[in-house]
């Protein structure tokens, strides 16, 4: 049974159709890559799944329940966590307080002391233990991106939505990030993973979806998708002659 099932998801912003009848399914423990050219609707789709944006039409089911109209906090309690493309830490909280907030109010809400303990564990897992008591201003870009992941993990989700967490990182930081994403699956979480670096997605993903101009273009295993002529045309503007 699918953990997440999106059917005919459509999102309009005034006269602009950002998503048009998009279908997507994710099974428990699966890593699904979501790729597409700029403006293809990837982040919008993630936002509709997380409840940050309401859909104009279509349905979203999670763990067998219709969550199409559920608020973002209900989806967080149901087991959906997300990161943002541009990290958005809570600026007046320390690193560990940022993560503890997710534990305090998330899926298995806890008291403050227990939440801080859990936050330290999660920070250790993502390599930020040394920064636990620091202000978020002191973090570098890759540390902020990992903090986004840590905060999402602290919600103890069944599905985690990652929005370009490797964007802007150097190769060694990106390699660490990929290890981190792979470890999410080992923790039993399903992942939807947006990334511009198609090669990185194909390395990690069990399946991939390609969006183009707000519509499903292709889906399947990474090998099938990357060899699909429609995908090549969408990315490169046409077949590449040898």
């Amino acid at each position: 049974m699918s953990l997440l099932r999106c059917r005919g998801v459509t999102k309009r912003f005034g006269g602009v159709k950002a998503l048009s009848e998009v279908d997507l399914e994710v099974a428990a423990g699966e890593i699904v890559g979501l790729v597409g050219p700029n403006g293809s609707g990837k982040t919008t789709l993630l936002s509709t799944i997380a409840g940050s944006l309401p859909v104009t039409a279509g349905t979203i089911e999670f763990d067998g329940r219709d969550i199409t109209r559920a608020s973002a906090h209900r989806r967080a309690h149901a087991g959906i966590a997300r990161t943002f493309q541009v990290p958005r830490p809570l600026g007046s909280f320390t690193v560990e307080e940022n993560v503890a907030t997710a534990s305090m109010f998330g899926r298995h809400a806890t008291g403050r002391a227990a939440a801080l303990d859990r936050a330290r564990d999660v920070l250790k897992a993502v390599g930020l233990a040394a920064h636990a008591g620091h202000a978020v201003d002191s973090l570098t870009l890759h540390e902020r991106k990992f903090l986004e992941i840590a905060r999402a993990v602290a919600l103890d989700p069944a599905l985690i939505l990652l929005d370009e967490v490797l964007g802007g990182l150097n190769p060694s930081e990106a390699a660490l990030g990929m290890e981190l994403i792979a470890s999410l699956r080992e923790r039993g979480m399903a992942v939807i993973y947006i990334e511009h670096n198609v090669r990185a997605v194909s390395t990690l993903a069990d399946r991939m979806y390609v969006l183009n101009q707000g519509q499903n273009l292709a889906d399947g295993t990474p090998a099938d998708v990357l060899n699909d002529p429609r995908v090549i045309e969408a990315y490169l503007g046409g077949p590449v002659d040898a």
Binding site: S52, H73, R82, M104, F105, G106, R112
Partner: peptide, 24 residues
């Protein structure tokens, strides 16, 4: 606990909501 939720909401209501805070 409610105070922490208020502080999180004050800084970024959308983020607080995705972290499970019942903002409304």
């Amino acid at each position: 606990r409610a105070g922490r939720a208020v502080q999180a909401m004050r800084q970024d209501a959308a983020i607080a909501e995705t972290l499970g805070v019942r903002v409304l």
